[in-house]
Write a protein that binds this DNA or RNA. Structure first.
Lengths: 355, 355
DNA sequence: TGTCAAAATAAAAACGTTTTTATTTTTCTT
DNA sequence: AAGAAAAATAAAAACGTTTTTATTTTGACA
């Protein structure tokens, strides 16, 4: 029967103009009322709010964006190096994004994610975001000892929060792990357990936190009055592959390590894999202590003692700080350095058992 | 000396108006020229392009957005269930985002990520994105057998690509893993190796792909003319914790399983952890076969035989399909189902060894 | 009750585009 | 060389806001 059922035309979304027609006020008044400007009379404000609720008014983000010059986007740079076969990469970013998103929840800001492949790519992305106003604020990690992004953003007064600190004396908002402290604590623990030949599986030195860890590692030896096993420091990307290969290489040295300090859950898995393939048993032949941010070490075989700091918390703090920065808060007030907590998991009889 | 060094005022970014002034053409012509409209003379087009290049003109996304009604955002719903202590969660999303981002690279679209906590949250996010025009297209996963998001989006003619298929007969763009096939192949392999008591660690049935796997699992038994070990099917979230607990529960049954089919790398790690803690050796006491999308199983101890499909490829396809959908391409033409490839890693002597 | 200040609201401009419509210029035809 | 058609360009309007400026209304005071 119904000859040609044409699609139900959806009513166009109401705008402030709609509200103006409904209430009889001008669009200027509507706008001010909705933004709770004190110049509009309380009674009309309430009236307008009611009308807005009735028709289900939602401010048009594009109109606001054009007028205000803001984008209402909080950008996050997500590093993914993933060459083929290195795909367990950046897995902790899920948690970071989750944390940032939680902080942004209920605000007008959305989270946009920019995947970057390396440091140069990251610098370029930051530049583009600033130049084109792609976002109102920026969050990023993998801070280099001398990071061009930080210089750029500070210079442009662009709101940002970095996860990690660079090694320059600049004022900027940041969240970080106390890497020096953690590396020191881990190393000192192994030294106290009798280890002398301790390997450090570390990121490349251009990363700021790689330096921090080297510092902590060295301090532990210094405080114990022993020469650091500097020849057992390996540096590379944070892949599982790298962890595995490092173990295989290190263990065929003349004086092989009796213990390992690992950088993150990804390399730790690689280290365990390497040890397993060489038939070495963790907690018997060798000790491993790691840093973990996604609480996965409990499931390794065997479970590994770690310094644990849930990275989602950092993500949340990053988001909160960024919101404040975007509102103009002084970056000096927006700094937080977390100390991970030790979680003992091995049947850990570190105390003269080995060596 | 320099008394009061005032900040160098950055020149305002050039607009089409700037270009109009420089070239002497009207803004209408500038706009059309930049968009390569055929109505503008080639010679003036070139002239305008040159001017644009010279002054470093970048189209203002906000102006375009307002005028066109588009947002130039491709939204991705990222599920993060992460209760405390279940934090190795959704780790494959890094790769998905990476893939989507690759596809979007070089286009005008940016990727915005919306974190969702559960199915209801996801439905709400989809609704908000559609209603408020937060994005021009949507990508999401974790498809339910009867997924409200798909109904909503199809109904609104909103461009989207789902990772996974729902169990309703609707036309929509999607990318999927052939879960039925993979579950069948894994189960059949174990049956051929002599296993009869095979456990399936599966997601909850409301997920479409959980059903697909059940189908494949059942088919393998049916084809072998054996009754399926239906009592060994466990269903839960995809956490490592669940994998571990499932093993512990299953192995104290009257007739425990001699093999496990695992759903993803996260549960697999849990299963291995559970087996390890019970002193069972994979490849000796019990066989495990898994599905892996981030290529991490090679590093488990022992390495696990898996059906592997790099999920970044799916991400890339999702992004490519979405672009096409947003350009109006027929969803019927945008479907792809991937079959993972078997990677044998165990010293796998499946062939009458057990049982 | 008339004047003036304060309060409330309205009008208009602007943000940077795209698109529709109008105008001018060029080219072709005869 | 005139006229018409086609090509090229310009003008103007619109997208939905916010903000600045202008106008009207109200209230206080004498």
């Amino acid at each position: 029967m119904a000859a040609h059922m044409h699609k139900t035309r959806r009513a166009p979304a109401p705008t402030i103009k709609t509200l103006a027609e409904i209430t009889g006020y001008s669009i200027a008044t509507i706008s001010k009322a909705l933004r709770e400007s004190p110049v509009v009379a309380p009674v009309t404000r309430d009236l307008i709010f009611k009308a807005a609720r009735d028709v289900g008014y939602q401010a048009n983000a594009r109109g606001m964006a054009l007028r205000t010059g803001k984008s209402f986007q909080a950008a996050v740079l997500m590093p993914v190096t993933a060459a083929r076969d290195y795909e367990w990469d950046g897995v902790e970013y899920t948690q970071i994004l989750s944390g940032v998103s939680q902080a942004l929840d209920g605000t007008d800001y959305r989270m946009s994610v920019h995947v970057i492949r390396d440091a140069a790519d990251g610098a370029e992305a930051a530049r583009r975001i600033v130049d084109q106003g792609l976002a109102d604020g920026l969050i990023f990690s993998g801070i280099l000892a001398d990071d061009p992004r930080i210089d750029l953003l500070v210079d442009h007064h662009f709101p940002f929060v970095s996860m990690g600190r660079c090694r320059k004396d600049l004022d900027y908002a940041h969240v970080d792990i106390d890497n020096e402290w953690a590396a020191h604590a881990a190393t000192a623990r192994l030294i106290a357990g009798g280890h002398r030949r301790i390997a450090l599986v570390n990121p490349e030195r251009r990363f700021s936190y790689a330096m921090d860890r080297l510092d902590g590692f060295a301090r532990a030896f210094r405080e114990a009055g022993i020469a650091a096993s500097a020849d057992l420091i390996v540096e590379g990307d944070l892949s599982t592959h790298f962890g595995r290969q490092s173990v295989i290489d290190l263990l065929q040295a003349a004086e092989p390590p009796t213990a390992f300090v690992c950088i993150n859950e990804s390399t730790t898995l690689g280290v365990l894999s390497g040890l397993g393939s060489l038939g070495r048993q963790v907690g018997v032949d060798v000790d491993v202590i790691a840093y973990d941010d996604i609480n996965v070490s409990a499931y390794f075989t065997p479970p590994i003692t770690t310094f644990y700091q849930p990275i989602e918390v950092l993500g949340r703090t990053l988001g909160q700080f960024l919101l404040k920065r975007m509102e103009g808060e002084d970056p000096k007030a927006l700094r937080q350095v977390f100390r991970p907590t030790l979680i003992e998991r091995q049947p850990d009889n570190l105390g003269g058992r080995l060596v």
